[in-house]
Design a protein around this nucleic acid. Structure first.
Lengths: 110, 110
DNA sequence: TTTTTATATTGCAATATTACGATAAATATT
DNA sequence: AATATTTATCGTAATATTGCAATATAAAAA
């Protein structure tokens, strides 16, 4: 055992879980916030910004990219990473729906 | 190695990561959606609803509860679980801010 | 071409998560 | 009291994540 049983859940449920997982580490949250803060996103500076080694940061960037939260474009010998809004919109609207549905249900319990 | 270095990040970053982590498994997403769907939330039925054993479901419920996404109240020999809106509001507004800030930044790159 | 700079990959150790059988605990029913 | 029902906990195996040193890759600068 030990592996998540994704096949038993809907695509949508797996998708939300995967996006959430990408945000489930403070370093990745910090990376997203840094990308938002800086005007440009020429971004090797992320390594200097975080208390983590270069390979570790690279790995976190890879996960964010796989999840679709950021995109990266080669820019000379550096890489320009930046946020992909669309996916954050998905998360925002998903949680917004939860809040709305939850409010419309006041409340037989708790 | 292997442990997340939470001490190097802000409380806010760790908090968002912790909430995201609670939603980072499809079973927990499914639990939240089930709690939203049913009118009441007298909820041992969650075990029947999911393709997972009772101890596994209990463990997922525990994590959701620790993260503050649900609350549980003893109701006879069963337990009534239900959603705690406040925390979903936090998530929603956090991602909403990301989308807004990201839109106001069109865009020197990518 | 050699060297520097920037990023990615590999390999590995430490730790965390996921899942479940067995069992415990606690209330409800008989 | 004995039994059934409901949920939690323990123990443990399988797998995943985190982090870094070492190394690879690839473009830029010298």
């Amino acid at each position: 055992m030990g592996a998540t049983k994704t096949e038993h859940f809907t695509n949508r449920q797996n998708a939300i879980a995967a996006l959430s997982k990408a945000m489930a580490h403070p370093a990745r949250v910090a990376i997203i916030e840094y990308l938002l803060k800086v005007d440009s996103c020429i971004c090797g500076d992320i390594v200097n910004e975080l208390p983590l080694s270069q390979p570790t940061v690279s790995q976190h960037l890879k996960e964010l990219k796989n999840a679709g939260l950021i995109k990266g474009e080669i820019e000379g010998n550096a890489i320009c990473y930046c946020i992909d809004e669309k996916v954050f919109q998905k998360l925002q609207s998903y949680f917004s729906q939860i809040v709305i549905k939850s409010e419309n249900k006041k409340k037989n319990c708790c």
